[in-house]
Design a protein around this nucleic acid. Structure first.
Lengths: 195, 195
DNA sequence: GTCTATACGCAGATAGAC
DNA sequence: GTCTATCTGCGTATAGAC
């Protein structure tokens, strides 16, 4: 119990990066051993299986997402500005997106196949964004159902841009599309809900 | 040389389905053996490695894509109708999309990580659609650069819808979004290019 | 062309010393 | 808590008989 939590975090940090960069299936425990400079036994002590590591990562990511969304809620007052900030996230992450794609999207693509771990792992992350986005549209006075529909559409747009940026390794495309998307948000939602 | 080509096709067909349903990394040669009811040695005779199978699959898919696009070119005259037909593909494939995502998109997500096989494998498939879509916009009298931009945006939209449909296992979302997308195409491009 | 049998490495999981 | 050592299965690739 010396500094178990600290090494635990180190393992999660390293594994998260490896899973993101190489994919979950293509990352071995040995890879994690190398990069953490810890022993295989030590890692096993903290996480009994590879999937346990993945679950730990997602737990951490969910906390990060919640933290980010809460921060935006505090720093940004206008719902529309929050939506724009959401889109800006892709600009911030453009280098990662180019080389590795969306951390949630690519992980889902990998996990949703063969086994339904996906439901417990990647789906919750998407749900956080979905409900947060929905909340912003509610604040813009859209009815519940349409708020959710708008949220899903925005999620969809952002995912599409991520995929194409990743596939064609094209940051120019990303910047152009995000700019257009932001303009669309202004036009579509700038005035709030009009029945 | 009895009927080598026939078994070759059988291997490709089965492997293609398995790679799509389970993912490339999670599919073993043994899986292919089971499903083809061929021996492991026989498969090795036709394809010297797992990656060779993948390359064979992509070769086949490229032919399929070209065939499909040529068919559309022949059957459908108006470029706008061709774009609508392109969107309709997602409706046709909605069950597969729900459970396994876009065949090109999910494969890219898997392969683009760790190794750059991706450039030779999945990128060409995307490029076919990109240039075909670009061609349609050119026929609508859009300038070359904007034609390509429109093509990329449409690709992006469609990929986004695929991802979200897959993540949330939501066919209702897909149908609604495709309907909206088609309407948008009508409005945006229905009149052709206006300088 | 198709099969069986085998080699070899690496992955993940486990046991136990310090 | 951290380490080294070992077990076991599965994965790909190969050799060779028919």
């Amino acid at each position: 119990m010396k500094q178990g939590n600290e090494t635990k975090i180190r393992i999660l940090t390293v594994a998260n990066e490896l899973f993101y960069h190489q994919g979950f299936n293509s990352t071995s425990i040995a890879n994690i051993v190398d990069k953490t400079k810890l022993s295989k036994g030590n890692i096993t002590y903290h996480f009994k299986s590879k999937q346990a590591i993945l679950e730990g990562i997602v737990e951490q990511r969910l906390l990060d997402i919640d933290g980010l969304l809460n921060q935006w809620d505090m720093e940004i007052i206008a719902p529309l500005d929050r939506l724009l900030r959401f889109c800006g996230m892709l600009i911030d992450e453009q280098d990662n997106l180019k080389y590795y794609g969306c951390p949630m999207g690519t992980l889902t693509g990998e996990l949703s196949k063969n086994q339904p771990i996906h439901y417990k792992i990647t789906l919750p992350m998407f749900k956080r964004f979905r409900s947060w986005l929905t909340q912003q549209f509610l604040l813009l006075n859209y009815p519940p159902e349409q708020s959710d529909e708008n949220a899903m559409e925005l999620l969809s747009r952002v995912q599409g841009i991520s995929v194409i940026t990743h596939v064609f390794k094209d940051k120019e495309f990303l910047n152009k599309e995000i700019k257009k998307l932001k303009e669309t948000l202004h036009i579509e939602y700038g005035g709030g809900f009009i029945p």
